[in-house]
Design a protein around this nucleic acid. Structure first.
Lengths: 251, 251
DNA sequence: TACCGTTGTTTACGCCGTTTACGTTTGTAC
DNA sequence: GTACAAACGTAAACGGCGTAAACAACGGTA
C-alpha cells in the first residue's frame, strides 16, 4: 500500500502510475460496482486511453487478480492496526477485536470484500500453495488470526479432540496445514491438531456470518445484523473456552 | 421446473421457449462460466438471434434474476427428494440428510450455487420481504430446513437461551422472522426465540463451510473437505443436543 | 378471407477488451 | 551535446457485447 519502490526515478513514476490505476479501479468498484471497472473507464478517469493501461497490466483479468490480492493486504492492515493498541496478554480481547474488525471492514468495503471472498471468476488462480509469493498478502491476513488464536491457546488452553478422535484423512490435512504455518511463522506455538480443527471451525463461522451479511443473505430474517453477530461471537467464544462475559464492542 | 403451463397452445410453446432459454443459459453457465452466458451465445445455441430473446425477457439482467430464483427451486427439489425416503420420526437423520444434500448439490452445481449464494450483482433485488411472490422458491428452500429443524426441536428439545438473555433488538427481529415463517407454514411448532437463534446460527455454519468449499476458500488448508464437513456437522449437531454418534454419510 | 397480435430478423448504436502501428518522451552512453 | 533505445501513450481497427427500432412472416380469430 505505502511501500516505497526502490530504483531510479523511472521506476518510481511507473510504480505511482500502477498505484493510480489500482486506486482508480478500486474507487470505481466501490462507487459504481464491479461491472463499472472497465479498462476504458479507468483510463477515462485518469485522462488517458485504454490501450495505454496495457503498459502496466497484461490484461483486464490480471488487474482484477492484483486488486484481489491487494485486498487481503488492506484487510491485514486494518486488523493489525486494530490490534496495535491491545496488550499482548489480553488474548481474548485480541481475538475478539480481530473478529469485530474483520466484520466492520467487510461492511465498510462490501465490494472489495466480495472480490477476495466471493465466488472467484474463472481463470483467477485459486490459493492452493501457501508458499506462493503471489499469496503473500493472504498469508499476512491469515497470520493475524493464526497468531491471535495461537496466543489464546497458549495462555488459556481449552479442551479439544485428541488426534485419534479426528478422521485420519482430515488429521493428515490439518497436520500439513499446521506445519506450513509453523514454517512461515517461527513464533507460533506447537498446536495440537484438535486446536487447528477448532481454529478452522471458528474461521468458518466468522466467514459465514460476515459473508451472509455483506452479500445480503441475512436480509430474509434480520434487518440489523449487529446483535446477531455478537451472539455468534459469544457462541464461538464458548467453543474456545471463553465463558466470561465478553467485553462489549467499541461502539 | 416441471410445471405444466395452463392456457392454449400459444402459451404452451411460449413457455417451452422460455424454458429452453433458461436451460441453455444454465448449460452455458455450468460448462463455460458466467461470463459465457450472453444473450448472443444463448441465441446462437438455440439457432436464433439475440434480439429475439427480448420477446421473452426484458433484459439480460432479468434473465439472470430469474435463473437465480429458479436455483432456489432446484435446490428445494433436491432436498425434498433426499428427504422423501426418510421416516418423519428420524428427526436427526432428516436434518443431517438435508445438510449433506445441500453440500453435495452445491459441489455438483458450483456456478448455480454461486448465482444464489454468492455476491449479488448490483441491481439484483435483495430478499427483504419473505411474502414477496418473487421469492417463493427461496421460501420453499428455507422451509425444508425450517421444517426439519422444527421437527427436531419438537421431538428432542435442547437447552437454548431464554428470551430475556437475548439482546432485545435481536429478539425483536427473531420474533418477526418466526412469526413470518409461522404465517407461511401453519404446521410449524411454536418455537421459542432461543431456538430460532440456534437455527440461524446453525444455518450460518452450514452456509459458511459449503460456501468456502465451493468458492475455493478452503484450498489454502484442505485438499478434500469431506471429512472437515462431517466434523463441522458433528459440532453443529452437538449444539442441537445431538450427542449420539451420527449416522455416517451415504457414501 | 381479412386482420392483428406474436414472433423473429435485420440493421444500427455505443459500449467493451484487445491488437497493431505509430509518434513522443526520457534516461543513458558516448 | 548528441545519438540511441527503451518506455510511454495515442489513434485506428476488430470482433463481441447489450439493446433499440424498423420490418417481415406467421397464426389464431372474426
Amino acid at each position: 500500500m505505502s511501500a516505497i519502490p526502490a530504483g531510479g526515478r523511472r521506476e518510481r513514476v511507473r510504480a505511482a502510475t500502477v498505484q493510480e490505476i489500482k486506486a482508480t479501479a478500486r474507487r470505481l468498484l466501490a462507487q459504481e460496482g464491479p461491472q463499472a471497472v472497465t479498462l476504458r473507464a479507468i483510463a477515462r478517469e485518469m485522462g488517458m486511453t485504454a490501450p495505454g493501461l496495457y503498459r502496466y497490466f497484461p490484461s483486464h483479468e490480471d488487474l482484477w487478480e492484483e486488486l484481489c490480492h491487494d485486498t487481503y493486504g488492506a484487510m491485514a492492515d486494518a486488523l493489525e492496526e486494530a490490534l496495535a493498541g491491545i496488550p499482548g496478554d489480553q488474548v481474548e480481547l485480541r481475538l475478539l477485536t480481530a473478529a469485530r474488525r474483520f466484520r466492520s471492514w467487510a461492511v465498510e468495503h462490501p465490494r472489495d470484500f466480495g472480490l477476495a471472498f466471493g465466488m472467484p471468476l474463472p481463470g483467477l488462480s485459486q490459493v492452493k500453495d501457501l508458499t506462493d509469493p503471489a499469496h503473500l498478502s493472504g498469508m499476512r491476513f491469515a497470520l493475524v488470526f493464526t497468531r491471535a488464536f495461537g496466543q489464546l491457546w497458549s495462555a488459556r488452553p481449552f479442551p479439544v479432540l485428541q488426534e485419534e478422535e479426528i478422521a485420519p484423512a482430515l488429521a493428515e490435512q490439518l497436520r500439513r496445514y499446521r506445519d506450513a504455518m509453523a514454517a512461515a511463522e517461527p513464533g507460533l506455538p506447537d498446536l495440537p491438531l484438535g486446536v487447528v480443527l477448532v481454529f478452522l471451525q471458528a474461521w468458518v463461522q466468522l466467514y459465514g456470518v460476515v459473508t451472509m451479511e455483506v452479500f445480503g443473505h441475512l436480509g430474509f430474517c434480520l434487518t440489523d445484523v449487529q446483535d446477531f453477530f455478537e451472539a455468534q461471537l459469544t457462541s464461538v467464544a464458548a467453543a474456545l473456552g471463553i465463558t466470561r462475559t465478553l467485553p462489549g464492542p467499541t461502539a
